[in-house]
């Protein structure tokens, strides 16, 4: 039998973080909350005599799946905030009634039936599970192997970007630079050497003027560039001590 305290703890660390799915704005926060939910579920599995599954839950979900989610979040922009304002007419009400109704319906259904609970059940240790997997369900394991391989190949195919032009070697890149008359060396890195270093601050040339081209084009578009003038003003401020430079 499960201790009621453990149950309530598990209930608390699953349901409350899960609600972030509905109300949190930042996707990263949601992902971290779901990690917590997964851990809670792992605890629930252990409590329900399924220690192997609990460990697998932690390894697969917390360790692999949710990390994958985080990677993808980073890839598509971690700063994105979602406006929770609903755009589809009545979608919020439909969602509320459908999901709430479904939950309420299931709960009422389960509370109304009484199932005799086995006193001493089999414990889901690795050994009995392994025997069951590779004897009774061996065909399913085979099929799942195919599914996993297919999924892996599918992910590769979906994310693959075909190369449209032949790869350019460094020599070719350098020759093109010289030919077009652009800067023969690397572009100037952003940031102010020795004093300040950040991607969003333009570098200063020897005369102390900001080099606009040193800041990433993307940051300019996003208006996340710091103005170089501010720093130049600091540099040229006669009131500042010579030591500060």
């Amino acid at each position: 039998m499960v201790s009621p305290i453990l149950f309530w703890i598990i209930a608390a660390i699953t349901v409350i973080p899960a609600l972030s799915l509905l109300f949190a704005r930042k996707a990263v926060h949601i992902a971290m909350s779901i990690v917590l939910v997964m851990v809670g579920l792992a605890a629930a599995y252990v409590a329900l005599d399924a220690p192997f599954l609990g460990v697998v839950q932690i390894v697969v979900y917390t360790g692999a799946v949710m990390m994958l989610f985080l990677f993808v979040l980073m890839l598509v922009g971690v700063d994105q905030r979602e406006d929770l304002k609903e755009t589809i007419t009545a979608q919020r009400w439909i969602a509320f009634f459908a999901a709430g109704g479904l939950g309420a319906f299931l709960v009422s259904l389960i509370t109304r039936v009484s199932i005799p609970v086995a006193e001493e059940g089999a414990v889901g240790d690795p050994e009995p599970i392994a025997i069951l997997l590779f004897e009774k369900y061996v065909l399913v394991i085979e099929v799942l192997g195919f599914v996993l391989i297919t999924a892996a190949v599918g992910a590769l195919v979906l994310t693959h970007v075909p190369r449209l032009k032949p790869r350019r070697t460094q020599v070719e890149v350098q020759r093109d630079r010289v030919r077009t008359g652009s800067d023969p060396v690397n572009k100037v890195f952003p940031g102010v050497y020795a004093r300040h270093n950040a991607l969003d601050i333009p570098a200063l040339d020897p005369e102390g003027k900001p080099i606009e081209a040193s800041v990433s084009r993307v940051l300019k578009i996003r208006n996340q560039v710091q103005d170089g003038a501010e720093f130049r003003a600091q540099l040229e401020d006669p009131s500042r001590k010579e030591d500060d430079r």
Binding site: T14, V15, A18, L21, L22, E82, Q91, A98, G100, V107
Partner: peptide, 27 residues
């Protein structure tokens, strides 16, 4: 242990509501 089934039902409802309500595909 039936209480865990109830817990599962609640979690399911929350998940389905999230699918219906959130516009962010990852969420």
């Amino acid at each position: 242990p039936v209480n865990f089934v109830i817990l599962a039902s609640i979690l399911f409802a929350i998940g389905s509501a999230a699918v219906l309500l959130r516009r962010n595909a990852i969420v």
